[in-house]
Amino acid sequence: MVGYVLNRLIGMIIVMFIVATVVFVIVRVTPGDPAAVMLGPDATAADIAALREQLGLNRPMLIQYVAFLEQVARGDLGRSIFLDQTVLSALAQRAEPTFFLTVFAMLIACAIALPVGIMAAWKRGTWTDQLVTAVAMLSASIPSFWLGLLFIQFFSVRMGWFPTSGYGGPGESFAGRMQHLVLPAVTLGIISSALITRFTRTSMIEVLSSDYIRTARAKGVGHMKVLLQHALKNALIPILTVIGLTAAVLISGAVVTETVFGLPGVGNLVVSAVLRRDYPVIQGALLIVAGLYVLLNFIIDMLYLVVDPRVRF
Results as ranks from 00 to 15, higher is better:
Thr200Met: 08
Thr200Pro: 02
Ser203Phe: 02
Ser203Thr: 04
Met204Thr: 06
Met204Gly: 04
Ile205Arg: 03
Ile205Trp: 01
Ile205Thr: 14
Glu206Ile: 11
Glu206Tyr: 07
Glu206Ala: 15
Glu206Pro: 01
Val207Thr: 12
Ser209His: 14
Ser209Thr: 10
Ser210Tyr: 08
Asp211Lys: 06
Tyr212His: 13
Arg214Glu: 12
Thr215Gly: 02
Thr215Asp: 00
Ala216Gln: 07
Arg217Asn: 09
Arg217Ile: 06
Ala218Thr: 08
Ala218Tyr: 10
Lys219Cys: 08
Lys219Ala: 04
Gly220Phe: 13
Val221Asp: 08
Val221Met: 15
Gly222Phe: 09
His223Cys: 11
His223Asp: 15
His223Tyr: 15
His223Ala: 15
Met224Glu: 12
Met224Trp: 14
Met224Ile: 14
Met224Asn: 14
Met224Leu: 15
Val226Asn: 13
Leu227Thr: 13
Leu227Ala: 14
Leu227Tyr: 05
Leu227Glu: 05
Leu228Asn: 06
Leu228Gly: 09
Gln229Thr: 12
His230Trp: 11
His230Pro: 04
Ala231His: 04
Leu232Ala: 11
Lys233Ile: 09
Asn234Ser: 10
Asn234Gly: 10
Ala235Thr: 06
Leu236Thr: 03
Leu236Arg: 02
Leu236His: 05
Ile237Pro: 00
Ile239Trp: 00
Leu240His: 06
Leu240Gln: 06
Leu240Pro: 01
Leu240Ala: 10
Thr241Lys: 01
Thr241Asp: 02
Thr241Met: 04
Ile243Leu: 11
Ile243Arg: 01
Gly244Ser: 10
Gly244Arg: 00
Leu245Arg: 07
Leu245Pro: 00
Thr246Met: 08
Ala247Arg: 01
Ala247Cys: 08
Ala248Ser: 13
Leu250Ile: 12
Gly253Ile: 00
Gly253Pro: 00
Ala254Lys: 03
Ala254Pro: 00
Ala254Cys: 12
Ala254Leu: 06
Val255Tyr: 02
Val256Leu: 11
Thr257Asp: 07
Glu258Ala: 10
Val260Cys: 08
Val260His: 04
Phe261Asn: 03
Gly262Gln: 11
Gly262Asp: 09
Leu263Tyr: 08
Leu263Arg: 05
Gly265Met: 09
Val266Asp: 05
Val266Arg: 01
Val266Leu: 13
Asn268Ile: 07
Asn268Ser: 15
Leu269Met: 14
Val270His: 06
Val270Arg: 01
Val271Trp: 09
Val271His: 08
Val271Thr: 15
Ser272Arg: 14
Ser272Phe: 11
Ala273Gly: 08
Ala273Glu: 06
